[in-house]
């Protein structure tokens, strides 16, 4: 079984002479949440549309579940649930009627699929309220219900929390988390908000002006984000004793390969170094790790940063 659920190879989209997406190769691994981060207009939606075959590809290839999308749409679409841009439904029909329409076209996985999908997102089944009088939060929920209607393996969600109030955002976020953790779904999500992606994603791809600047796991990036003093010594025990007796701190951990993390960042590095050397703890590395994710994004996007 191929490990990558979505794999794009040098995906490019040109409108005339302007290139909107340029040689983007993303790899969405099975069972993970992949966050596509970029400012508005960075090419996130276009990339997602190309992955879904909604938008023609200028050059490059999209592979879903290890198969080329082209000519396999009918086979691959049932395995994908998506929300692209705003969730689109018929305004004069109720949420239930809307889902029934899409269930009719796409087929279903169980008898009461519509009812269960609505229940999952907390919308009433068979009520009288037309979609046009739904609040933004309800519309977004219905979009999610439509996406999960057939319990798909892959979800492609374009800014799913856009326009929601903080409570709604938290709910959607928790829901997406549970989809990944409890149901093992693979999720591709886009956002222009850094914290959103940081809270949700396992892997992250950063799009800037149509270019994929970085693709990495969140865990790797988070290491850059923690605030602590990292030291590497020859004797952990001596260093521990120095920390407690001389620098009066218990707020440290001993890691593997003789390194230690001191979370008490108020400690003066020079003093720490002197104290460690004086007992012969053999310091080989001493550094403050306080790279902030936001600063990091600023750095790689060339200073402009992300909202």
């Amino acid at each position: 079984m191929n490990d990558c659920v979505i794999e794009t190879q040098m995906l490019t989209k040109r409108y005339g002479s302007t290139t909107v997406v340029n040689n983007v190769s993303i790899h969405v691994k099975r069972g993970r949440i992949y966050g596509l981060l970029g400012r508005n207009g960075a090419g996130k939606t276009t990339t997602m549309k190309m992955i879904l075959g909604l938008s023609a590809i200028s050059s490059g290839e999209v592979r879903l579940f290890g198969e080329s999308l082209k000519k396999n749409e009918r086979k691959l679409y049932p395995r994908i649930g998506s929300i692209i841009e705003t969730p689109g439904f018929y305004p004069h029909l109720t949420g239930t009627e809307n889902l029934q329409i899409f269930a009719r076209i796409r087929g279903t996985i169980k008898q009461n699929a519509v009812q269960e999908a609505l229940k999952t997102v907390g919308l009433p089944y068979d009520d009288k309220k037309p979609f046009s009088s739904y609040s933004l939060g309800m519309k977004q929920r219905l979009g999610i219900a439509n996406a999960i209607l057939n319990d798909p393996e892959l979800l492609i969600l374009d800014e799913p929390t856009n326009g929601l109030d903080p409570i709604g955002i938290a709910e959607v976020r928790a829901f997406i988390r549970s989809l990944s953790e409890e149901y093992g779904k693979t999720i591709l999500i886009s956002s222009h908000i850094l914290t959103e992606i940081a809270l949700l994603a396992d892997d992250i791809g950063i799009l800037h002006h149509g270019n994929l600047l970085e693709e990495n796991t969140m865990a790797d990036l988070e290491k850059k984000n923690q605030k602590y003093i990292h030291i590497q010594v020859t004797s952990q025990s001596l260093a521990a004793q120095v920390l407690e007796r001389v620098l009066h701190t218990n707020n440290y951990t001993a890691e593997a390969d003789n390194s230690m993390r001191i979370y008490d960042t108020g400690i003066d590095l020079v003093e720490l170094n002197k104290a460690l050397v004086s007992v012969g703890a053999g310091v080989s590395t001493i550094q403050i790790c306080s790279d902030n994710l936001e600063d990091y994004f600023k750095k790689i996007t060339g200073g402009v940063g992300i909202e």
Binding site: M1, P78, R79, A103, R104, R106, G107, T108, I109, Q111, N150, D151, P152, E153, Y183, G184, K185
Partner: peptide, 14 residues
């Protein structure tokens, strides 16, 4: 073969 996320999707009338 182990892909438990796969579902059979059919039309209700089938």
């Amino acid at each position: 073969n182990g892909n438990m996320n796969r579902r059979l999707i059919v039309s209700k009338t089938s």
